[in-house]
């Protein structure tokens, strides 16, 4: 799960203070499990160092919360690359995928493409597993089946999400 890419995505809409950033992230992507302050600063300083964000301005007062960050062109390219890259299909992917979809919707990118690309990747893996299963012994088959069922569950989620994209867009877009 990439907090950095999420921050970049959130900043794409408008420059934000560190504090705003944390609150937006907690609210959208990690309700009930807020980020530590340390995680926020560490991530932001890595992004600053890599030139993906810049400090846009300072508010009166002290501390990083008072700094306002803005995304750079390099940052936007980085988000784009991340969004269009399918995740390696594995269990419990949905939080990353969900983040990607929401960010895409918030930033006006085509979210259905993300889902399609992911879907193709999932099915490709399913085909590989199926092939392995067809040639394998019973133990191998059972292991493969476990993977297949999980992959299928993700795929189903992808299909369902694709079917409800409009509904989701209405929610996340201001």
């Amino acid at each position: 799960m990439s907090i950095g890419h999420s921050f970049l995505g959130l900043l794409e809409g408008k420059p934000r203070h560190g504090y705003d950033l944390k609150r937006a992230y907690d609210e959208r992507f990690s309700p009930g499990r807020p980020l530590h302050h340390g995680q926020v600063y560490a991530t932001l300083s890595r992004l600053l160092k890599n030139g993906l964000v810049v400090v846009d301005g300072l508010e009166p007062g002290e501390g990083p919360e008072r700094k306002r960050y803005a995304v750079t062109d390099a940052g936007i390219t980085d988000v784009q690359a991340w969004l269009s890259q399918p995740e390696k299909p594995e269990p419990y992917l949905q939080s990353v995928l969900y983040t990607k979809v929401v960010l895409a919707l918030m930033t006006g990118r085509p979210a259905d493409e993300i889902l399609d690309v992911q879907r193709t990747e999932h099915l490709r893996l399913m085909r590989d597993v199926t092939r392995r299963k067809t040639g394998g012994d019973l133990a191998e088959q059972l292991i493969c089946d476990h993977a297949l069922f999980h992959l299928e569950a993700d795929l189903r989620w992808l299909e369902l999400t694709a079917a409800r994209l409009n509904e989701l867009a209405a929610r996340v877009r201001p």
Binding site: D116, T120, M126, R127, T130, L151, L155, R156
Partner: peptide, 25 residues
């Protein structure tokens, strides 16, 4: 999906139009 996984490739039909997703990718 598990039945489709026996195929070599996949085509998706949505609203009467077919999408060859793998070619897009």
């Amino acid at each position: 999906p598990r039945v489709a996984a026996y195929a070599d490739r996949e085509v998706v039909v949505r609203d009467g139009a077919s999408l060859d997703l793998e070619r897009v990718a």
